[in-house]
Amino acid sequence: MTEIHDYVRMEFAPERASVAPDENLLAQGIVDSLGILKLVTFLEQRFGFEAADDDLVPENFSTLEMIRDFVERKRKP
């Protein structure tokens, strides 16, 4: 989780000291349509899975908590 938090903060909100786990990244435009490409590439490379088109839904990417849960689900064999 720390790793995902640090990546999102540094990449998308460098002016901030931290991003809360339940903050809505999409509503605030912290992660936008170009950002999601970067984020997914990072998650795929770092955690070794492949995201499908159908994975790109708000339920997986709205908050840091949701991203963490999504990554855990994807990593399960």
Partner: peptide, 8 residues
Amino acid sequence: DRARGFMG
């Protein structure tokens, strides 16, 4: 749905 950002 603005709360969903670009996914809305």
